[in-house]
Simulated scan of single mutants.
Amino acid sequence: MADTIDALLSDYFSGKIDMQVKLRKLELKTSLVHDENIGGGKAQNKHVRPVDNMLIREDEDTVLHELYKLRNQQQMITDVLATFDYELVRMASLRYDRRKRKNEWKYIALIFNADESTCRKRIRKFKKEFSNKFWKFD
């Protein structure tokens, strides 16, 4: 249970879900069809609508729909985090954001002018309260 909460908070604070959505949309934009008809004739009454085709591909993509579900879950996490103290959320952000590489306990304790064990206890308590609120909200 603690590993799932850690992974969920790490993905949330690192912005992984938004990055995956953008990456999937870029993957869908790239054309997979290579026209090997060199020197041949082209169809004359064929209508090419690239925007419509792109919207259809995004609408039918199951991976993108799963990522949108995760984005909705991300909004629920934001709502749950709004119920906590700002300082505690900032501490969790420093701990779980993988992009900053400053998630060591010494660094966090230095910023909040507290002992490392105190910071660990506060994060442990935060995770417990977060999991109770999040799974109840979910």
Score class of each variant (00 low, 15 high):
1 M>S: 15
6 D>S: 12
6 D>M: 07
8 L>M: 15
9 L>N: 06
9 L>H: 04
10 S>C: 05
10 S>W: 04
11 D>Q: 13
11 D>V: 07
12 Y>P: 03
12 Y>R: 04
13 F>P: 04
13 F>Q: 01
14 S>I: 08
15 G>Q: 09
16 K>S: 10
16 K>W: 03
17 I>C: 06
18 D>A: 06
18 D>T: 08
20 Q>F: 10
22 K>D: 09
23 L>F: 09
24 R>W: 07
25 K>H: 02
25 K>S: 07
25 K>F: 07
25 K>N: 09
26 L>A: 15
26 L>D: 12
27 E>C: 03
28 L>W: 00
28 L>E: 01
29 K>V: 03
29 K>S: 09
30 T>P: 00
30 T>M: 13
30 T>A: 14
30 T>F: 11
30 T>R: 07
31 S>T: 07
31 S>M: 05
33 V>R: 08
34 H>N: 11
34 H>F: 13
35 D>Y: 06
35 D>H: 06
37 N>F: 08
39 G>K: 06
40 G>T: 11
41 G>D: 15
44 Q>W: 09
44 Q>G: 05
44 Q>A: 05
47 H>K: 05
47 H>E: 03
49 R>S: 02
49 R>Y: 02
49 R>M: 01
51 V>E: 01
52 D>H: 02
53 N>L: 02
54 M>C: 01
57 R>H: 05
60 E>D: 12
63 V>I: 15
64 L>K: 09
64 L>I: 13
66 E>R: 11
67 L>A: 04
68 Y>I: 13
69 K>M: 04
70 L>Y: 07
70 L>H: 13
71 R>P: 04
72 N>P: 01
72 N>S: 14
75 Q>R: 12
75 Q>D: 12
75 Q>W: 00
77 I>R: 05
78 T>Y: 00
79 D>F: 03
81 L>A: 09
81 L>H: 11
82 A>G: 14
83 T>V: 11
85 D>K: 10
86 Y>N: 07
86 Y>P: 02
87 E>K: 12
87 E>H: 09
88 L>S: 13
89 V>A: 11
91 M>P: 01
92 A>W: 00
92 A>M: 05
93 S>G: 15
93 S>M: 14
94 L>C: 04
94 L>V: 01
95 R>E: 03
95 R>L: 06
95 R>H: 08
97 D>L: 06
98 R>S: 12
98 R>G: 10
98 R>A: 10
99 R>V: 14
101 R>I: 11
102 K>G: 05
103 N>T: 10
104 E>F: 14
104 E>V: 07
104 E>S: 08
104 E>Y: 11
106 K>Q: 13
106 K>E: 11
107 Y>I: 10
107 Y>L: 06
107 Y>W: 03
108 I>G: 01
108 I>L: 02
110 L>V: 05
112 F>C: 12
112 F>I: 08
114 A>C: 09
114 A>K: 13
114 A>W: 01
114 A>G: 01
114 A>H: 04
115 D>G: 03
116 E>V: 08
118 T>V: 14
119 C>I: 15
123 I>Q: 12
123 I>N: 10
124 R>I: 06
125 K>N: 07
126 F>M: 08
127 K>E: 10
127 K>S: 02
129 E>M: 07
130 F>N: 01
132 N>I: 14
132 N>Q: 13
134 F>P: 03
135 W>G: 00
135 W>C: 04
135 W>S: 06
136 K>S: 15
